[in-house]
Design a protein around this nucleic acid. Structure first.
Ligand code: SF4
Ligand code: SF4
Lengths: 154, 154
DNA sequence: AAATTGCGGATATCAAGTATCCGCAATAGC
DNA sequence: GCTATTGCGGATACTTGATATCCGCAATTT
Protein backbone atom coordinates (compact mmCIF):
# COMPACT_ATOMS: atom_id res chain seq x y z
CA UNK A 1 0.00 0.00 0.00
CA UNK A 2 2.43 2.63 -1.22
CA UNK A 3 2.45 5.07 -4.06
CA UNK A 4 5.33 4.46 -6.46
CA UNK A 5 8.17 6.86 -5.94
CA UNK A 6 7.67 8.03 -9.50
CA UNK A 7 4.41 9.59 -8.35
CA UNK A 8 6.44 11.99 -6.22
CA UNK A 9 8.62 12.75 -9.19
CA UNK A 10 5.84 13.63 -11.59
CA UNK A 11 4.01 15.64 -8.95
CA UNK A 12 7.12 17.77 -8.55
CA UNK A 13 7.64 17.94 -12.29
CA UNK A 14 4.07 19.10 -12.82
CA UNK A 15 4.41 21.57 -9.98
CA UNK A 16 7.56 22.96 -11.56
CA UNK A 17 5.96 23.37 -14.97
CA UNK A 18 3.09 25.15 -13.30
CA UNK A 19 5.55 27.68 -11.92
CA UNK A 20 6.84 28.67 -15.34
CA UNK A 21 5.22 31.29 -17.53
CA UNK A 22 2.04 29.87 -19.10
CA UNK A 23 3.02 27.34 -21.77
CA UNK A 24 6.53 27.08 -20.36
CA UNK A 25 8.42 24.00 -21.48
CA UNK A 26 11.09 21.83 -19.90
CA UNK A 27 12.76 18.71 -21.25
CA UNK A 28 12.92 15.44 -19.36
CA UNK A 29 16.69 15.75 -19.06
CA UNK A 30 16.36 19.22 -17.57
CA UNK A 31 13.79 18.10 -15.04
CA UNK A 32 15.86 15.06 -14.09
CA UNK A 33 18.83 17.33 -13.54
CA UNK A 34 16.71 19.75 -11.55
CA UNK A 35 15.70 17.08 -9.03
CA UNK A 36 18.65 14.69 -9.44
CA UNK A 37 16.55 11.82 -10.69
CA UNK A 38 17.38 8.97 -13.12
CA UNK A 39 16.84 10.67 -16.51
CA UNK A 40 15.74 7.63 -18.52
CA UNK A 41 13.19 6.45 -16.02
CA UNK A 42 11.80 9.89 -15.31
CA UNK A 43 11.36 10.41 -19.06
CA UNK A 44 9.35 7.24 -19.30
CA UNK A 45 7.07 8.26 -16.44
CA UNK A 46 6.52 11.70 -17.92
CA UNK A 47 5.26 10.04 -21.06
CA UNK A 48 2.46 8.55 -19.01
CA UNK A 49 1.27 12.06 -18.20
CA UNK A 50 1.19 12.84 -21.90
CA UNK A 51 -0.91 9.74 -22.53
CA UNK A 52 -3.22 10.88 -19.74
CA UNK A 53 -3.65 14.22 -21.49
CA UNK A 54 -2.09 16.28 -18.70
CA UNK A 55 1.14 17.17 -20.48
CA UNK A 56 1.84 18.08 -24.07
CA UNK A 57 5.15 17.03 -25.54
CA UNK A 58 7.10 18.61 -28.37
CA UNK A 59 10.17 17.07 -29.97
CA UNK A 60 13.27 18.72 -31.26
CA UNK A 61 15.57 21.35 -29.79
CA UNK A 62 13.84 23.66 -27.33
CA UNK A 63 11.18 20.97 -27.03
CA UNK A 64 10.02 19.09 -23.96
CA UNK A 65 6.93 18.95 -21.80
CA UNK A 66 4.42 21.58 -20.90
CA UNK A 67 1.07 21.55 -19.16
CA UNK A 68 -1.81 20.66 -21.47
CA UNK A 69 -4.27 22.71 -19.43
CA UNK A 70 -4.35 25.64 -17.08
CA UNK A 71 -2.78 24.74 -13.70
CA UNK A 72 -6.09 25.48 -12.02
CA UNK A 73 -7.66 22.76 -14.12
CA UNK A 74 -5.25 19.93 -13.24
CA UNK A 75 -5.85 18.10 -9.99
CA UNK A 76 -3.43 16.08 -7.91
CA UNK A 77 -5.68 13.08 -8.37
CA UNK A 78 -5.27 13.20 -12.14
CA UNK A 79 -1.51 13.26 -11.80
CA UNK A 80 -1.44 10.42 -9.30
CA UNK A 81 -3.80 8.29 -11.33
CA UNK A 82 -1.80 8.87 -14.50
CA UNK A 83 1.06 7.05 -12.81
CA UNK A 84 -0.66 4.66 -10.44
CA UNK A 85 -3.79 3.88 -12.41
CA UNK A 86 -7.37 3.89 -11.24
CA UNK A 87 -7.69 0.35 -9.95
CA UNK A 88 -9.05 0.17 -6.40
CA UNK A 89 -6.90 -0.49 -3.34
CA UNK A 90 -9.25 -3.19 -2.20
CA UNK A 91 -10.53 -5.70 -4.70
CA UNK A 92 -13.22 -8.07 -3.51
CA UNK A 93 -12.46 -11.56 -4.74
CA UNK A 94 -15.77 -12.91 -3.49
CA UNK A 95 -14.05 -15.30 -1.17
CA UNK A 96 -17.30 -15.67 0.73
CA UNK A 97 -18.51 -17.70 -2.24
CA UNK A 98 -15.62 -20.15 -2.08
CA UNK A 99 -14.52 -22.96 0.21
CA UNK A 100 -16.53 -24.83 2.78
CA UNK A 101 -18.36 -21.75 3.98
CA UNK A 102 -19.45 -20.72 0.50
CA UNK A 103 -22.47 -18.52 0.73
CA UNK A 104 -25.35 -19.17 -1.65
CA UNK A 105 -25.42 -16.68 -4.55
CA UNK A 106 -28.75 -15.21 -3.46
CA UNK A 107 -26.94 -13.77 -0.44
CA UNK A 108 -24.33 -12.10 -2.62
CA UNK A 109 -26.51 -9.92 -4.80
CA UNK A 110 -25.10 -6.73 -3.37
CA UNK A 111 -21.72 -5.72 -2.06
CA UNK A 112 -21.22 -6.58 1.59
CA UNK A 113 -20.34 -4.06 4.30
CA UNK A 114 -16.67 -4.88 4.15
CA UNK A 115 -16.32 -4.02 0.49
CA UNK A 116 -18.63 -1.03 0.78
CA UNK A 117 -16.69 0.61 3.58
CA UNK A 118 -13.31 -0.10 2.04
CA UNK A 119 -14.44 1.50 -1.19
CA UNK A 120 -15.94 4.45 0.63
CA UNK A 121 -12.62 5.09 2.36
CA UNK A 122 -10.90 4.95 -0.99
CA UNK A 123 -13.38 7.41 -2.44
CA UNK A 124 -12.62 9.78 0.43
CA UNK A 125 -8.94 9.63 -0.48
CA UNK A 126 -9.61 10.30 -4.14
CA UNK A 127 -12.08 13.08 -3.38
CA UNK A 128 -9.53 14.84 -1.25
CA UNK A 129 -6.90 14.75 -3.98
CA UNK A 130 -9.42 15.86 -6.58
CA UNK A 131 -9.99 19.05 -4.60
CA UNK A 132 -6.45 20.32 -5.03
CA UNK A 133 -5.11 21.77 -8.26
CA UNK A 134 -1.61 22.63 -9.37
CA UNK A 135 -2.57 26.26 -9.04
CA UNK A 136 -3.27 25.70 -5.35
CA UNK A 137 0.15 24.17 -4.95
CA UNK A 138 1.93 27.05 -6.68
CA UNK A 139 -0.04 29.60 -4.67
CA UNK A 140 1.06 27.92 -1.45
CA UNK A 141 4.76 28.14 -2.29
CA UNK A 142 7.04 30.19 -0.04
CA UNK A 143 8.02 33.59 -1.35
CA UNK A 144 10.76 33.53 -3.99
CA UNK A 145 10.54 29.88 -4.86
CA UNK A 146 8.66 30.45 -8.09
CA UNK A 147 11.11 33.08 -9.31
CA UNK A 148 13.99 30.73 -8.63
CA UNK A 149 12.30 27.86 -10.45
CA UNK A 150 11.80 30.09 -13.51
CA UNK A 151 15.45 31.10 -13.48
CA UNK A 152 16.74 27.58 -13.26
CA UNK A 153 14.23 25.80 -15.44
CA UNK A 154 12.95 28.47 -17.80
CA UNK B 1 -1.03 1.27 -4.51
CA UNK B 2 -2.90 -1.88 -3.58
CA UNK B 3 -3.72 -3.55 -0.31
CA UNK B 4 -2.19 -7.02 -0.06
CA UNK B 5 -4.68 -9.75 -0.74
CA UNK B 6 -4.03 -11.04 2.74
CA UNK B 7 -5.79 -7.95 4.04
CA UNK B 8 -8.98 -9.25 2.50
CA UNK B 9 -8.37 -12.61 4.12
CA UNK B 10 -7.90 -11.35 7.65
CA UNK B 11 -10.82 -8.95 7.33
CA UNK B 12 -13.03 -11.91 6.51
CA UNK B 13 -11.45 -14.02 9.23
CA UNK B 14 -12.06 -11.30 11.80
CA UNK B 15 -15.58 -10.83 10.52
CA UNK B 16 -16.22 -14.54 10.88
CA UNK B 17 -14.89 -14.66 14.44
CA UNK B 18 -17.13 -11.72 15.26
CA UNK B 19 -20.11 -13.77 14.15
CA UNK B 20 -19.45 -16.56 16.62
CA UNK B 21 -20.64 -16.54 20.22
CA UNK B 22 -18.50 -14.14 22.28
CA UNK B 23 -15.07 -15.71 22.79
CA UNK B 24 -15.68 -18.16 19.96
CA UNK B 25 -12.52 -19.75 18.58
CA UNK B 26 -11.45 -21.05 15.20
CA UNK B 27 -8.14 -22.53 14.10
CA UNK B 28 -6.15 -21.26 11.14
CA UNK B 29 -6.74 -24.52 9.31
CA UNK B 30 -10.48 -24.23 9.82
CA UNK B 31 -10.58 -20.65 8.58
CA UNK B 32 -8.46 -21.53 5.55
CA UNK B 33 -10.84 -24.33 4.72
CA UNK B 34 -13.80 -22.04 5.22
CA UNK B 35 -12.61 -19.58 2.59
CA UNK B 36 -10.44 -21.94 0.51
CA UNK B 37 -7.22 -20.08 1.20
CA UNK B 38 -3.61 -21.33 1.44
CA UNK B 39 -3.48 -22.62 5.04
CA UNK B 40 0.18 -21.97 5.79
CA UNK B 41 0.19 -18.42 4.53
CA UNK B 42 -3.11 -17.52 6.13
CA UNK B 43 -1.80 -18.84 9.45
CA UNK B 44 1.20 -16.58 9.18
CA UNK B 45 -0.92 -13.53 8.48
CA UNK B 46 -3.24 -14.29 11.38
CA UNK B 47 -0.24 -14.21 13.67
CA UNK B 48 0.24 -10.59 12.72
CA UNK B 49 -3.18 -9.82 14.19
CA UNK B 50 -2.11 -11.49 17.43
CA UNK B 51 0.99 -9.32 17.53
CA UNK B 52 -1.23 -6.30 16.94
CA UNK B 53 -3.32 -7.26 19.96
CA UNK B 54 -6.51 -7.84 17.99
CA UNK B 55 -6.60 -11.63 18.23
CA UNK B 56 -5.77 -13.96 21.10
CA UNK B 57 -4.30 -17.33 20.24
CA UNK B 58 -4.43 -20.56 22.22
CA UNK B 59 -2.45 -23.68 21.34
CA UNK B 60 -3.48 -27.29 21.61
CA UNK B 61 -6.62 -29.15 20.55
CA UNK B 62 -9.70 -26.96 20.49
CA UNK B 63 -7.35 -24.01 20.30
CA UNK B 64 -7.08 -21.33 17.65
CA UNK B 65 -7.81 -17.64 17.34
CA UNK B 66 -10.45 -15.51 18.96
CA UNK B 67 -11.09 -11.79 19.15
CA UNK B 68 -9.10 -10.09 21.87
CA UNK B 69 -11.75 -7.41 22.34
CA UNK B 70 -15.44 -6.86 21.85
CA UNK B 71 -16.31 -6.64 18.12
CA UNK B 72 -17.61 -3.12 18.70
CA UNK B 73 -14.14 -2.15 19.84
CA UNK B 74 -12.18 -3.37 16.82
CA UNK B 75 -12.05 -1.11 13.78
CA UNK B 76 -11.36 -2.00 10.18
CA UNK B 77 -8.39 0.34 10.28
CA UNK B 78 -6.74 -1.66 13.05
CA UNK B 79 -7.12 -4.86 11.06
CA UNK B 80 -5.80 -3.34 7.87
CA UNK B 81 -2.86 -1.73 9.62
CA UNK B 82 -1.99 -4.98 11.36
CA UNK B 83 -1.30 -6.45 7.93
CA UNK B 84 -0.24 -3.48 5.89
CA UNK B 85 1.54 -1.43 8.51
CA UNK B 86 1.16 2.24 9.29
CA UNK B 87 3.69 3.72 6.90
CA UNK B 88 2.25 6.48 4.73
CA UNK B 89 1.31 6.01 1.07
CA UNK B 90 3.27 9.07 0.14
CA UNK B 91 6.71 9.59 1.58
CA UNK B 92 8.39 12.90 0.91
CA UNK B 93 12.01 12.33 -0.01
CA UNK B 94 12.78 16.02 -0.01
CA UNK B 95 13.74 15.94 -3.63
CA UNK B 96 13.34 19.70 -3.72
CA UNK B 97 16.56 19.85 -1.74
CA UNK B 98 18.52 17.81 -4.26
CA UNK B 99 19.86 18.33 -7.75
CA UNK B 100 20.46 21.55 -9.59
CA UNK B 101 17.27 23.14 -8.33
CA UNK B 102 17.99 22.37 -4.70
CA UNK B 103 16.06 24.76 -2.51
CA UNK B 104 17.88 26.38 0.39
CA UNK B 105 17.04 24.73 3.73
CA UNK B 106 15.38 27.86 5.07
CA UNK B 107 12.60 27.32 2.52
CA UNK B 108 12.03 23.76 3.71
CA UNK B 109 11.22 24.34 7.35
CA UNK B 110 7.67 23.17 6.93
CA UNK B 111 6.02 20.56 4.79
CA UNK B 112 5.07 21.88 1.37
CA UNK B 113 1.54 21.83 -0.04
CA UNK B 114 2.17 18.67 -2.00
CA UNK B 115 3.09 16.62 1.03
CA UNK B 116 0.40 18.24 3.16
CA UNK B 117 -2.43 17.44 0.79
CA UNK B 118 -1.24 13.92 0.11
CA UNK B 119 -1.11 13.24 3.80
CA UNK B 120 -4.49 14.82 4.37
CA UNK B 121 -6.01 12.52 1.77
CA UNK B 122 -4.43 9.58 3.49
CA UNK B 123 -5.81 10.70 6.82
CA UNK B 124 -9.27 10.84 5.28
CA UNK B 125 -8.89 7.22 4.22
CA UNK B 126 -7.75 6.13 7.64
CA UNK B 127 -10.45 8.12 9.40
CA UNK B 128 -13.13 6.48 7.32
CA UNK B 129 -11.86 3.00 8.18
CA UNK B 130 -11.51 3.89 11.84
CA UNK B 131 -15.23 4.69 11.97
CA UNK B 132 -16.31 1.14 11.20
CA UNK B 133 -16.13 -1.71 13.70
CA UNK B 134 -16.54 -5.44 13.31
CA UNK B 135 -19.84 -5.11 15.07
CA UNK B 136 -21.05 -2.79 12.32
CA UNK B 137 -20.06 -5.38 9.74
CA UNK B 138 -21.86 -8.21 11.52
CA UNK B 139 -24.96 -6.07 11.99
CA UNK B 140 -25.05 -5.35 8.28
CA UNK B 141 -25.02 -9.03 7.29
CA UNK B 142 -27.99 -10.45 5.39
CA UNK B 143 -30.45 -12.53 7.42
CA UNK B 144 -29.26 -16.06 8.15
CA UNK B 145 -25.61 -15.58 7.34
CA UNK B 146 -24.52 -15.40 10.96
CA UNK B 147 -26.39 -18.59 11.91
CA UNK B 148 -24.76 -20.41 9.03
CA UNK B 149 -21.30 -19.17 9.96
CA UNK B 150 -21.80 -20.44 13.51
CA UNK B 151 -22.86 -23.84 12.27
CA UNK B 152 -19.92 -24.24 9.94
CA UNK B 153 -17.21 -22.63 12.03
CA UNK B 154 -18.41 -23.03 15.60
C1' DA C 1 2.36 -39.89 26.29
C1' DA C 2 0.01 -38.46 22.05
C1' DA C 3 -2.31 -35.37 19.16
C1' DT C 4 -3.39 -30.62 18.11
C1' DT C 5 -2.31 -25.98 17.45
C1' DG C 6 0.25 -21.52 17.29
C1' DC C 7 5.04 -19.39 16.73
C1' DG C 8 9.27 -18.01 14.42
C1' DG C 9 12.70 -18.67 10.99
C1' DA C 10 14.40 -20.15 6.51
C1' DT C 11 13.48 -20.57 1.88
C1' DA C 12 11.43 -20.38 -2.80
C1' DT C 13 8.38 -18.14 -6.17
C1' DC C 14 5.95 -14.35 -8.39
C1' DA C 15 4.52 -9.60 -9.57
C1' DA C 16 5.39 -4.81 -9.69
C1' DG C 17 8.35 -0.95 -9.54
C1' DT C 18 12.88 0.74 -10.73
C1' DA C 19 16.34 1.55 -14.19
C1' DT C 20 18.79 1.40 -18.62
C1' DC C 21 19.35 1.12 -23.52
C1' DC C 22 18.06 1.08 -28.33
C1' DG C 23 16.07 2.49 -32.75
C1' DC C 24 12.69 5.47 -34.62
C1' DA C 25 10.10 9.68 -35.65
C1' DA C 26 9.44 14.53 -35.24
C1' DT C 27 11.16 19.18 -34.87
C1' DA C 28 14.23 23.39 -34.76
C1' DG C 29 18.20 25.76 -36.45
C1' DC C 30 21.66 26.08 -39.72
C1' DG D 1 18.81 19.24 -47.00
C1' DC D 2 21.78 18.24 -42.82
C1' DT D 3 22.40 17.85 -38.12
C1' DA D 4 21.44 18.07 -33.36
C1' DT D 5 17.85 17.69 -30.04
C1' DT D 6 13.98 15.65 -28.04
C1' DG D 7 10.01 12.50 -27.21
C1' DC D 8 8.18 7.68 -28.06
C1' DG D 9 7.81 2.72 -27.70
C1' DG D 10 9.85 -1.75 -26.98
C1' DA D 11 13.11 -4.90 -24.94
C1' DT D 12 15.67 -6.06 -21.14
C1' DA D 13 17.74 -6.43 -16.40
C1' DC D 14 17.50 -5.56 -11.42
C1' DT D 15 15.29 -4.91 -6.94
C1' DT D 16 11.70 -5.21 -3.71
C1' DG D 17 7.71 -6.82 -1.52
C1' DA D 18 3.93 -10.13 -1.50
C1' DT D 19 2.73 -14.85 -1.88
C1' DA D 20 3.49 -19.52 -0.46
C1' DT D 21 5.57 -23.58 1.78
C1' DC D 22 8.09 -26.11 5.18
C1' DC D 23 10.45 -27.08 9.49
C1' DG D 24 11.41 -27.45 14.43
C1' DC D 25 9.80 -25.83 18.76
C1' DA D 26 6.66 -24.69 22.54
C1' DA D 27 2.18 -24.87 24.64
C1' DT D 28 -2.11 -27.19 25.68
C1' DT D 29 -5.88 -30.59 25.59
C1' DT D 30 -7.11 -35.31 26.07
S1 SF4 E 1 -18.60 -8.91 -1.16
FE1 SF4 E 1 -17.92 -8.64 0.94
S2 SF4 E 1 -18.17 -10.71 1.90
FE2 SF4 E 1 -18.20 -10.99 -0.32
S3 SF4 E 1 -16.02 -11.49 -0.77
FE3 SF4 E 1 -16.34 -9.23 -1.14
S4 SF4 E 1 -15.69 -8.30 0.77
FE4 SF4 E 1 -16.04 -10.50 1.20
S1 SF4 F 1 8.29 18.78 1.26
FE1 SF4 F 1 7.03 19.07 -0.59
S2 SF4 F 1 8.44 20.07 -2.08
FE2 SF4 F 1 9.71 19.20 -0.47
S3 SF4 F 1 10.28 17.17 -1.32
FE3 SF4 F 1 8.46 16.88 0.05
S4 SF4 F 1 6.74 16.95 -1.33
FE4 SF4 F 1 8.49 17.85 -2.44
Amino acid sequence: MKLPESAEWVLHAAGSLAQLEPGGTASAARLAEHFDLPPAYLAKQLQALVRAGLFTATTGPRGGFRLARHPGDITLLEIVEAIDGTSPFYTCNEIRQQGRGAAPPEQCRQMCGLARHLHAAEDAWRARLAEVTLEDIVDGLPRGVQRRTRELLG
